[in-house]
Each structure stands twice: as structure tokens, then as C-alpha cells.
């Protein structure tokens, strides 16, 4: 990718991000009632999106080849277990990441 192509790519990321942030405020200006359907989506969509993002993160893991995704499964289990137990975002993320790094560097 050339520098110009990189700048265009980054500009697209900025444009896309700003669209998602400004659109609701442009579509539903102050003083107007938000449609029921949009209110409903605002309530149920975030949970599904987080699920989608978890899958997005592991999309390139192959369970048939290499280390069969075992480091990912173990590290996600540790992150999730710690988080359900201690509910401390930084602890869960730091421990899970360090554990994963140890696994891929020293074990697998």
C-alpha cells in the first residue's frame, strides 16, 4: 500500500466512525421523539454486536491446523473466568493477554 492509499484508508475509517457517531443526532434532533423501533434496537443490538466482535477476533483461528486454537480457547476461558469472578476489567484483560503470550511463546 502506498502512503496515499494508507491516508485514504485511514480517512475511510475516520469517515465511517464519525458517521456512526453523528448519524443518530442528525436523524433524531433535539425536541423530536425517537421512533419505537430505533429505541428497541438501541436496547437489544449492543449485546449481539459484542458477540459478533468476539467471533471477529477469533475468525482466523483454525481448529484443524497448527495448535488447533487451544491457546485461544484456554486464554479466553481464563479471561472470562476471571472476569465473572472478580469483575475487574483490567485484571481480566491483563491476565488473559499475558497468559496467551506465555502460551504461544513458551508452550505451543
Amino acid at each position: 500500500m502506498t502512503t496515499n492509499q494508507q491516508i485514504i484508508t485511514i480517512a475511510m475509517v475516520i469517515l465511517g466512525t464519525m458517521l456512526t457517531r453523528f448519524l443518530p443526532f442528525l436523524l433524531f434532533p433535539a425536541g423530536k421523539k425517537t421512533p419505537k423501533y430505533i429505541q428497541y434496537l438501541g436496547k437489544v443490538l449492543p449485546a449481539a454486536v459484542f458477540g459478533l466482535l468476539v467471533i471477529y477476533c477469533v475468525k482466523d483461528v483454525s481448529v484443524l491446523q497448527g495448535n488447533h486454537g487451544i491457546p485461544e480457547i484456554l486464554a479466553i476461558a481464563l479471561t472470562a473466568g476471571l472476569h465473572l469472578w472478580k469483575k475487574n476489567m483490567f485484571l481480566s484483560i491483563a491476565a488473559g493477554t499475558l497468559f496467551y503470550m506465555a502460551l504461544v511463546q513458551f508452550v505451543f
Binding site: 449481539a48 458477540g51 485461544e72 486464554a75 479466553i76 479471561t79 472476569h83 493477554t97 503470550m101
Partner: peptide, 28 residues
Amino acid sequence: FVMTALFVVIFLDQWMKEKNHFSSLTGL
């Protein structure tokens, strides 16, 4: 992996907050 861990944590925060898990499970 820090990114995966971040989303696992955000997903679980949402999971612990919600009354039913239909939307979370649908997403996954």
C-alpha cells in the same frame, strides 16, 4: 490477544447486566 480479551470482557459485562441472553447468544 488484548483485543480479544477486551471484547470478551465487554461481552461478559453486557451478559451480567441483561435479563435475557437472547441477543448476546444471537450475536455469538
